[in-house]
Amino acid sequence: MAPEVPPIDKTKLSEQVGIGQDGELQLHLENIRLAYNLPAITALTVKDGLVFEIASTGYRDIHTQTLVTDNDRWAIGSLTKSMTAMVAARLVEQEVISFDSTIADIFPELKGQIRAEHESISLKQLLNMTSGLKKDIDIKDRRWFDISKTTLMLRSMLTKEVLNTAPVQKRGQYEYSNVGYTIAGHMLERVTNQTWEQLISEELFSQLGITNFGFGEPSFEQSDQPKGHTYKNGKWQAITAGKEIIPKVYGPAGTVNISLSELALYLSKVLEGMKGGDNILSKESYKTLHTIYSEAQEPGVGYAMGWFAKLDNTAFRHDGFTGSFSVSSFLYPNENSAYFIAVNGDTENAAKALFAALELLRERNFSN
């Protein structure tokens, strides 16, 4: 049975896109929101290291109709993976771990307790999606939401369980895996004796001066933040406590939420690295992160560490779908530009709105 989607009315879309920084981005985003029948949408363009445009429109909660703002935090889903990879690179630079460190190296107690072929999976293979592991656990299984267990305990449980399942792809070939990233994050936890949440806070966000962030549904941490929505029975329904879709155990694979201005800072630093510069990582580490290791299932596209990339390295991207938020990010190092769009709903309509908003942002950027 196909998932429900809201009706679409493309007559709401703007015929003109305007010119970057003309003050009308919010108007054009509102037209996209109305056309695709979404609770809220936000968008950001980073150009030459600075925020070029930012705007938000719609509702934090479609029922209370509290308006979103440009300072709100948005769940970014799998864009989190690029952040996990950066933390790993920082720890490699500090010689706390190696990209070649294996499951058996980091979890020696699992020898003989997991499938033998998985013992030699390396951190690098987990981060570049060539481990051969399956994509997901059953996130509807309430074991993964067990609040009586710490997140570390749950990640340990996930690691052992997944490593006892058969590979779904030959090692060295691309296979997208959320559980692979979760295990990579757990490897970092083991060698530092810190949680992934602590590591990403201290090794990434603190280094960049980022303070407006969190984990999981933003509204669960602060009530005055956008709520994720699902579409059921012909209407949008806001996610409430106890109804979250992505368990926190999945943190390294996709639970960060962050404000757009803070995300802009992150994207600007990543662009510097893609262009051969350095900042909180050396240029050599950035090269390792942004090298394509396998061809993905999309023609002309490969996977690096935390990024899909065109085979000529002219464009990098990552989407994120949490079941209640949908996001897209695109980076063009040769243009020194990055784009990010988020919707606090997750349907086919959301994906179409993200694409329409990307086209809008790029046209406005190049018309300036």
Rank of each mutant, 00 (worst) to 15 (best):
A241H: 09
D312M: 09
L263I: 01
K269L: 02
G273D: 03
G251F: 02
A253T: 06
Y286A: 02
S282R: 07
G300R: 10
L281F: 03
E295L: 07
K248E: 12
V256W: 05
G242A: 08
S294Y: 06
P247E: 07
G306H: 13
Y286E: 02
Y303M: 05
G306S: 14
L267F: 00
T240S: 15
W236G: 09
G254K: 12
I239A: 10
E244M: 11
Q237C: 06
Y231F: 15
L260Y: 10
V256I: 15
S259P: 03
Y231N: 09
Y293G: 09
K269Y: 08
T288N: 07
M305L: 04
G277R: 04
M305S: 06
G277C: 04
D278C: 07
E262N: 15
I292N: 14
L281H: 04
E262C: 04
G277N: 05
M274V: 06
K287N: 05
T240L: 08
E244H: 03
T230W: 13
G234H: 14
K275F: 05
I245L: 15
W236E: 09
N279T: 05
P247V: 04
G251N: 12
T255R: 08
Q237D: 08
D312K: 11
G276H: 09
D278Q: 15
A241L: 10
Y266I: 01
Y266E: 02
K287T: 09
N233G: 14
G306C: 09
Y286G: 08
M305C: 10
L265Y: 04
K235W: 09
K275E: 15
A241V: 14
A253D: 13
L263M: 05
S294I: 09
K248S: 03
E284R: 04
D278T: 08
I292S: 07
S282F: 01
G234W: 14
S294D: 07
L260V: 01
A296L: 13
K287E: 11
Y303N: 02
G276I: 03
M274D: 05
V256Q: 06
K310I: 00
A309K: 10
D312Q: 12
A238R: 11
G242Q: 06
L265H: 02
G300I: 01
L289W: 02
L289E: 03
A238I: 00
P252G: 00
V249W: 11
I245C: 00
A304P: 07
V249I: 11
G300Q: 05
K269H: 12
K310P: 00
G242H: 12
Q237M: 11
E284H: 02
L263S: 01
Y293T: 05
L281C: 05
